[in-house]
Amino acid sequence: MAQGVFVITEQRDGEFRKVSFEAVSEGRRVADGLSTDLTAAVLGSGIEGIAGELGKYGADKVVAADDQSLADYTTDAYTNVLAGLIKSLDPAVIILGATMQGKDLAGRLAARLDAGVAMDCVAVKLEDGQLTYTRPMFGGKVLADVEIEGTPQIVAIRPNVMTITEKSKDCATEKPAIQVGDVKTAILEKIMDTGDKVELTEADIVVSGGRGTGGDFAAVEELAAALGAAVGASRSAVDEGWRPHSDQVGQTGKVVSPTMYVACGISGAIQHLAGMSTSKYIVAINKDPEAPIFSKADFGIVGDLFDMVPAIAEEIKKIKA
């Protein structure tokens, strides 16, 4: 019978993504609840050195698939290797981060393993041995509590939501034999964004601008810099060409769950609210006291963002100095 929890971590250039520690921590909680073991997998090239880090968050065992052909993520190679590992370990639950890589992988793996996927989960609950996963649907307008029939159950967790808990385990790293198999795609080039931009979906704080900026994001960027935050944008700001598509927060953009979301000059269209309503604290700055954003915010300021946002940035800088 399938048992055990299997976490698929994600690393880039020898560094784990934060969501990997969230996934291992959540995996530990689930494994403890089911009184079972937690195995974490890391795939890449030259990653043996970092594999041990996963023991810090409660992995009983790490399997490191270390191969030149796994240096960059490809759906085929990663699916082949992971499906092989999963078939031999026969876990009951598989947890991974719902990143762009995780989303690409989960659907393929699910079809290969004939497994159900709870995508983009924001909570995992264990009651009487039954796991229930909470996941937003319709862009977060509703939450669904879902159960998965059969094993393995694949759970993709939304980045930035699950708590990272350190729970040191004496953790051994194994290097299993792997089957990379047939890979039908080739990576020709990798283009990294320049500068040390904070990634929207992983940021602790997001400062977003909307139509109210009139295209002038200087104040938004200044506040983001003062807070060490990522910059986001509403759909109208993106449609106007003021910001790239990759900055868009909303139902047809990125879904973010930062500790604090600051909406500057964003009225709060339903499709925008869908992309940020799981933020822990929401601050709204808008000229229009009737703007719908205020009904979703924890703290509101009615005023001109070009006066207010720089003033807040000044105040933050003062405190941080």
Binding site: A115, V142, L143, A144, V146, E147
Partner: peptide, 16 residues
């Protein structure tokens, strides 16, 4: 395989 047990609205925030 993925059975929806309940649909619900996200918890309301406290008043702004």
């Amino acid at each position: 395989k993925v059975k929806i047990k309940t649909l619900r609205f996200p918890p309301e925030r406290q008043a702004v």
